[in-house]
């Protein structure tokens, strides 16, 4: 039995502790906003927050997060993610959309750590998230826009 919280709800799951968090979220808990892209922590589409830090759920066995607090795109709350999502929609960042949950979680984590990131900060923080549609120009701009919103 593995126990952890997801989006504020407790779960006791009788599953293989080696099962990646990604597939538990999707197949067992039906939280489908977290996406499968590569399975080897190369693309970032599966990014979730584990105890407040971004983590690749595709390579995170649930046995490793016993007692942790997991937050997915569905459960994200707070000024940073709201500013990010508002900036995302204001300039139409998404194209196909598949990678965007992961992008938004990584961007939110960046703004929680670095309130006014430079282009280099953004490149460093976001380089682990692949967008095959290459929406990178708008991702960069949206993060700057969100930072300005948060500064008020």
């Amino acid at each position: 039995m593995t126990s952890f919280r997801v989006n504020g709800r407790d779960h006791d799951l009788d599953l293989d502790p080696d099962m990646p968090l990604l597939w538990v979220l999707r197949d067992e808990l039906r939280l489908t906003g977290t996406k499968f892209g590569c399975g080897i922590a190369q693309c970032g589409a599966c990014t979730v927050m584990v105890d407040g830090m971004p983590r690749r759920s595709c390579v995170t066995p649930i046995g490793q997060i016993e007692g942790s607090e997991v937050t997915t795109i569905e459960g994200m709350d707070g000024s940073e993610v709201k500013a990010v999502q508002a900036a995302w929609t204001a300039i139409d960042v998404p194209q196909c959309g598949w990678c965007q949950s992961g992008q938004i979680l990584s961007a939110t984590a960046l703004l929680q750590q670095v309130p006014s990131p430079s282009d280099d900060d953004i490149d460093n923080a976001m380089a682990g998230n692949i967008c095959r549609c290459a929406t990178y120009v708008r991702i960069r701009q949206a993060i700057h826009d969100a930072a300005r919103t948060l500064e008020g």
């Binding site: 906003g33 997915t72 995302w88 960042v93 998404p94 959309g97």
Partner: peptide
């Protein structure tokens, strides 16, 4: 775009 919001909140 009409599909932007749903693609920004999962």
């Amino acid at each position: 775009k009409l599909d932007t919001v749903s693609k920004s909140n999962g």
